[in-house]
């Protein structure tokens, strides 16, 4: 089994940044804010690289959809070990209303075009928190899905995937080709080393547009408002454990 893997790499606001809602309530402040690869996508890339190291995967194609800066995200993926990259350029303004259904259609088309055997994506992006793209890509391809993966093993001609579910794990077997989404416990992504960052600069990057792939990006939702969450006021300090117990009893919490 030597598969071709397609991995998704979304460029998102860095997880350590405190996002700020725009005063006009149309979204969050994106300009001038540090961006990075979606942490769950880093796990997806790492897994593909490990599968390549185990000779399960022969080639890794990284994809990112969005504005020109996504090319940096793709260079990071290639520095981690992806062999080549496809940047599906969507201008920043238009990208604001692009949703998982659009990305899934793009990924499904690309998976067919590059003859991928496995598509590995992060389980969700930490910006829109949708957790949909892998499931929808699998549906468009009519491939089986193994989402929230915590462990991936080869099992004959199929893959045995241990999935995170509420209260534990479950194991399923999926035939290849398949779509997998990476959960937190799957692995710990490596840091790109300087020599690999240099090497990544020479790896091939193809540019495409949604139109090239025949995907219609008409928005499916309309954003009415984006607001700050209700502010949580700090309460009171208690002096000791006894007072804490009294207060909790008063609130009916214990």
């Amino acid at each position: 089994m030597a598969m071709r893997a397609l991995v998704g790499c979304k460029r998102v606001i860095d997880y350590a940044v405190k996002v700020r809602v725009k005063p006009d309530k149309t979204g969050v402040v994106i300009d001038g804010v540090k961006h990075s690869m979606n942490p769950f996508d880093e796990i997806a890339v790492e897994e593909a690289v490990r599968m390549k190291e185990k000779k399960l995967v022969s080639e890794i194609v990284a994809v990112s959809c969005g504005p020109a800066q996504c090319q940096e995200t793709l260079r990071t993926a290639m520095a981690m070990g992806a062999d080549k990259a496809i940047h599906v350029e969507i201008p920043a303004k238009e990208f604001e209303l692009v949703q998982p259904i659009h990305i899934a259609k793009i990924l499904a088309k690309l998976a067919t075009d590059v003859k991928a055997d496995v598509v590995i994506l992060g389980k969700q992006a930490i910006d829109d928190d949708c957790n949909q793209t892998a499931q929808m890509t699998a549906a468009f391809l009519d491939w089986p899905q193994a989402v929230f993966a915590a462990k991936i093993e080869k099992d004959g001609d199929s893959l045995a995937v241990t999935r995170e579910i509420d209260g534990g794990t479950e194991t399923i077997k999926v035939n290849v080709p398949a779509v997998i989404s990476a959960d937190l416990r799957l692995n710990e992504p490596r840091y790109a080393t300087l020599p690999n960052i240099m090497k990544a600069k020479k790896k091939p990057m193809e540019k495409k547009t949604a139109k090239d792939l025949g995907v219609d990006l008409t928005p499916r939702i309309q954003v009415i408002s984006v607001e700050d969450p209700p502010v949580r006021e700090a309460g009171q300090k208690v002096d000791d454990v006894d007072q804490l117990i009294t207060k909790l009893k008063g609130l009916g919490r214990i």
């Binding site: 829109d128 928190d129 309309q222």
Partner: peptide, 15 residues
């Protein structure tokens, strides 16, 4: 629904 892990709240209309 919330976005950015609850750091912003989005109201949306589905078409």
């Amino acid at each position: 629904r919330t976005i950015y892990a609850g750091n912003a709240v989005m109201t949306l209309k589905a078409s």
